[in-house]
């Protein structure tokens, strides 16, 4: 567990350092106030500085604890990662269709595919999808008058 935490901390710390550098670079184009006083870049730069320092601390702390990757730190399986990306893409593509397809089929499709990637049986996923999409539609459009 601790060793898995070590890998996570090194990765998190490294990502934070990269983020802080990107943030810093981005803020260089922000204007300063008159007389050289700090302007809108002040807070983002402070955040970037702190994130960089804390990221470095996480990396150093983990390396200093002299842990190494243990056999128990199993890498993520391809199936899991694939499911995860499918889930993200399903929702991320929803806005592309929202104005072209009626709410009920598109929402039912979304819930159905989520049901499938969550390991539900297809008929259960279908039943859940149709019922929930219908209920959500009725609740929002009929009861609350919110267009979907």
């Amino acid at each position: 567990m601790l060793k898995r935490l070590f890998i996570r901390d090194v990765l998190s710390g490294s990502l934070l350092i990269v983020l802080s550098l990107l943030l810093w670079v981005r803020t260089l184009s922000f204007p300063e106030l008159e007389n050289g006083y700090p302007g809108p870049a002040l807070f983002p730069q402070l955040i970037a500085f702190c994130l960089g320092i804390l990221g470095a601390y996480l990396v150093v702390r983990s390396v200093a604890s002299k842990n190494t990757l243990s056999p128990s730190s199993r890498p993520s399986s391809k199936g899991r990662v694939l499911r995860l990306f499918t889930g993200i893409i399903l929702v991320a593509t929803y806005p592309l269709f929202v104005h072209h397809i009626h709410f009920i089929p598109i929402m039912a499709g979304l819930i159905f595919f989520f049901g499938i990637i969550l390991n539900n049986k297809p008929w259960k996923a279908m039943l859940t999808a149709v019922l929930s999409a219908g209920l959500i539609y009725a609740l929002f459009t009929q009861l609350l008058g919110v267009p979907l």
Binding site: V91, M107, L110, I111, F114, G115, L118, N119, T128, A133
Partner: peptide, 12 residues
Amino acid sequence: RILLSIIAGLCV
């Protein structure tokens, strides 16, 4: 897993 698929829809 059934509840979570509905929650995914509700989030959207």
